[in-house]
Design a binder for these strands. Structure first.
Lengths: 101, 101
DNA sequence: AGTGTTTACGGCGACCGTAAATATG
DNA sequence: CATATTTACGGTCGCCGTAAACACT
């Protein structure tokens, strides 16, 4: 698993559609995104979203994983910025700037 | 940045050497590892370790980032396992099993 | 039929491994 | 001079994009 998978999954969950997430949020092709999400589900070993005729819907597992993914991504960003600027993590605000830890 | 960079950096920090980390922990080539660490430093915008004649040493920024990286990696693992098994994150032990969040 | 996702397939970029070069004590 | 890291250089694997096929309403 790579951060790319988390970024892709969050975008899909927020857009509610593979097509919309690919074109408007990730600026990649929809088939490529479909493959990455499939790979993520295979690695986790659980179905994260149900494919419907009009977009997708999150499974319970998908909703749980979405929370995890958001936290991880925000913390990665906070780690990079905090390390770069020398600001200790405990001084950073929660979410959008990462959690304090 | 990808999780690969975090995994590589943690291995190097724990081994205290690019060579040892590459051969014994990551089972990859040392030059490839060297490049990935360099890329990570470039993206963060800070030197994470000082190259010495006998292995490496962490900079203050490196020590800070190491803490971040460990937390992120453990949370990613916890997210995957928690989602797979259906166990809510709050029921998982801290470290080695990820933090509760 | 129309929207949306999946599968098939070729191209290209990035990581990787080997080998040579550089640095440090 | 020995150890360790960096740079150079091909090879190969995987991601990406286009096109066609499939599913559902």
């Amino acid at each position: 698993m790579e951060l790319r998978h988390l970024r892709y999954f969050v975008a899909v969950a927020e857009a509610g559609s593979l097509t919309v997430a690919a074109e408007q949020k990730l600026h990649t092709s929809q088939p490529s995104l479909s493959r990455q999400i499939r790979d993520l589900e295979d690695e986790i070993g659980a179905r994260l979203l149900t494919r419907r005729a009009r977009g997708i819907e999150l499974t319970p597992a998908g909703r749980a994983f979405l929370d995890h993914a958001r936290v991880v991504l925000s913390q990665v960003e906070a780690a990079a910025r905090g390390t770069r600027t020398g600001v200790p993590c405990s001084r950073q605000g929660a979410f959008g700037g990462g959690l304090a830890w």
